[in-house]
């Protein structure tokens, strides 16, 4: 019994001038699972991420984020309309390729981290987490006006946000460093803080771009634990790009392999491990062997 899909990417294609960065990629990420996206350098993994999170607009394709179990007819009906999202009896649908980056984070509840960490380095760890709660806090402060006058629910909303921030700081072991500038933290701590900040938005899907890059083995295993906990305790599905195969193989339920913008394999970690296309893409093969492999994939 497999979980229902949360994210469905269909025939995604994006070109930059003459370069086709992603070529007709289709895959699903299921609810409550950790889906890993792997591939050699330049395979288009981060580009795919940027399409899902709205930082790039794909040329062709549909990216559907589903809550509940909406049926295909409803998805197609929404696609034919000009709307970006819709609530149906069967579930809630967001068409991510039509939404802006901020809207994807706000409405579709997809959070992300970046390959080169993007923290607010001049603000403290606590402030970084509180800023992530901007939208609910802004509403609680009466769009600043009530907050300026000191009336309304802002104080209690802020208190609640601080409590959540404390929880996440404890989860990543940074409670003692809460009042230190994010930029002064160690590399590993910054990576974890960025994940905690993304989790402060209470996402349904967390997209992590190389979360283990630059971490030592102790930090890396701490990260695995954190991701497992996020998935188990918070029910957040995770989509991650990773080069560290030990991370990929130990925590992911499902692996998708990209090479030169095309999907070359899709399956469980153990199936991927012995897939010859994947081995060929990673280790490199003779040209005729590659052609043989490509005809097998149907490219």
């Amino acid at each position: 019994m497999t979980a229902p899909p949360l994210l469905r990417v269909e025939h995604l294609t994006i070109r930059f001038g003459g370069l086709t960065a992603i070529d007709d990629a289709s895959f699903e990420a299921r609810r409550g699972e950790i889906t890993a996206l792997i591939g050699p350098n330049g395979a288009g993994k981060t580009t795919l991420f940027n399409c899902i999170t709205g930082f790039y607009k794909p040329d062709i394709g549909r990216i559907v984020l589903m809550q509940g179990e909406p049926n295909t007819a409803d998805i197609d009906r929404l696609t034919r309309s000009v709307r970006r999202h819709g609530i149906f009896a069967s579930g809630c649908i967001c068409l991510l390729e039509r939404m802006s980056d901020a809207e994807i984070a706000r409405r579709a509840r997809v959070a992300r981290t970046f390959q080169n960490i993007r923290l607010f380095s001049g603000m403290t760890a606590l402030e970084n987490l509180i800023v992530a709660r901007h939208n609910p806090l802004m509403a609680a402060s009466g769009y600043t006006i009530l907050g300026l006058l000191g009336i309304g629910a802002y104080r209690s909303a802020e208190k609640e946000a601080i409590e959540t921030a404390k929880y996440w700081l404890a989860q990543i072991g940074l409670t003692e460093r809460a009042d230190d500038a994010a930029g002064s933290l160690s590399y590993g701590a910054q990576r974890q803080l960025e994940i905690a900040r993304a989790m402060m938005t209470e996402p349904v899907l967390l997209c992590l771009d190389e979360p283990a890059a630059g971490l030592n083995s102790a930090e890396s295993s701490k990260l695995n634990e954190l991701l497992r906990d996020i998935r188990k305790t918070h029910g957040t599905s995770i989509l991650l790009i990773e080069h560290d195969m030990s991370v990929v193989m130990s925590i992911s339920n499902h692996v998708i392999v990209l090479d030169y913008g095309r999907k070359i394999a899709d399956g469980t970690p153990s199936a991927i491990r012995c897939n010859e296309n994947v081995i060929a893409a990673y280790l490199g093969v003779e040209d005729d062997e590659l052609r043989l492999a490509e005809t097998k994939v149907g490219a």
Binding site: A105, R112, R118, L119, F120, G122, H134, N135
Partner: peptide, 12 residues
């Protein structure tokens, strides 16, 4: 001021 792209990724 610190990072506009990060702001957008947080739905701001």
């Amino acid at each position: 001021r610190e990072d506009e792209i990060a702001c957008r990724s947080l739905g701001i």
